[in-house]
Write a protein that binds this DNA or RNA. Structure first.
Lengths: 188, 188
DNA sequence: ACCTGAACACCGTTCAAGT
DNA sequence: ACCTGAACACCGTTCAAGT
């Protein structure tokens, strides 16, 4: 990559970070190019789709969360690990408004630039869930995709100004429901 | 209202129903006017905002749900009433894609045409919840807005093609969590 | 190799001109 | 009274022309 191209790439990414943080995942690409002082075609050259741009913006975070799952698997109890990871996922998805919806769409669309990261994250969560299930602290009638769905629903909820204040309480309610196994943990 | 105006109004509403069912709440208003064979200004004359159009489209359903809550209050046990109403709300919100998000936005915005219907629906749900709480079959650490948030989250989830298959199971999981009170119904 | 911006086909919204 | 559609300011996306 030529030096000027690299410079444009980095700068676009920086500006995109600010703009998307302000306006959400549906922010105007034209606006991003404009604020970066770059032609619209240059943005499209570096990021052929909106997903490609968001992928570049979010991949680090996704990878961090995937790594974090492995870390928690080693350092915390099955219950605490799942709970902490769940919470961190919601917190991350809430950083950029509208990202949850794109994540959910991407996980079923192999052509999306976000597909791989989403699938990796779901797999990481599935490992934590499976461990918790084996140890009898999580419901056995759900799988990784159910967990992904719950994380998504709570992230979406946190993104809605009218519901945001309830997100914490409802997180607890739902996490409790998932972590209490179907037999209501009779062995406790 | 003049006869031709009334005709346009009805026809627009009919076409809007079809188009919104197909394309969701963000459907192109221009497209609706076009398919109705009417000038764009005519659509704006009858429905000054998108919310006004959606309100006209959904009000019947909202009112039906509000009435349904009263009906269930008289005919079913507190537990069954809340459960059935919860389920019917989710089913309704899923009829038109994207309606949930607008509902949630409208409940906090007194200027939205949808505001009144949403507030009435939440109040109806609150009555069912309160009764269930009084009878000891629902958690006492939540209120009508929490219920509204849970209904919304599940509606949103049902609207996502990637998660739709999980909606039923997760409905049960969440409803169970809300209906089992904080002390895990020790009196059962 | 890379960048630019005009061009195209769409939006939502407003409003002067018509009947 | 009511309707129409052009006009305006925006999109996303593509691509010929420039350096």
């Amino acid at each position: 990559m030529r030096a000027d191209a690299r410079r444009n790439y980095e700068h676009l990414l920086g500006v995109a970070g600010t703009v998307v943080a302000e306006q959400g995942a549906e922010a105007s690409l034209r606006d991003i190019a404009r604020q970066a002082g770059v032609g619209l075609g240059t943005l499209y050259r570096h990021f052929p789709t909106r997903e490609a741009l968001l992928d570049a913006l979010l991949r680090t975070g996704f990878d961090r969360l995937t790594a974090r799952a492995a870390e928690l698997e080693a350092s915390a109890s099955a219950r605490e690990a799942l709970l902490a990871w769940f919470r961190e996922c919601v917190a991350f998805a809430t950083e950029y408004r509208g990202v949850t919806e794109m994540m959910v769409a991407a996980i079923e669309d192999p052509d999306s630039a976000l597909h791989a990261s989403c699938v990796a994250m779901r797999a990481a969560g599935t490992r934590l869930l499976t461990r918790a299930q084996t140890e009898g602290v999580a419901r056995t009638d759900m799988d990784g995709t159910d967990l992904f769905a719950l994380v998504s629903a709570l992230s979406w909820l946190s993104d809605q100004p009218a519901l945001n204040a309830r997100a914490d309480r409802l997180f607890t309610l739902i996490a409790d429901a998932a972590l209490t196994d179907a037999e209501r943990r009779p062995h406790l």
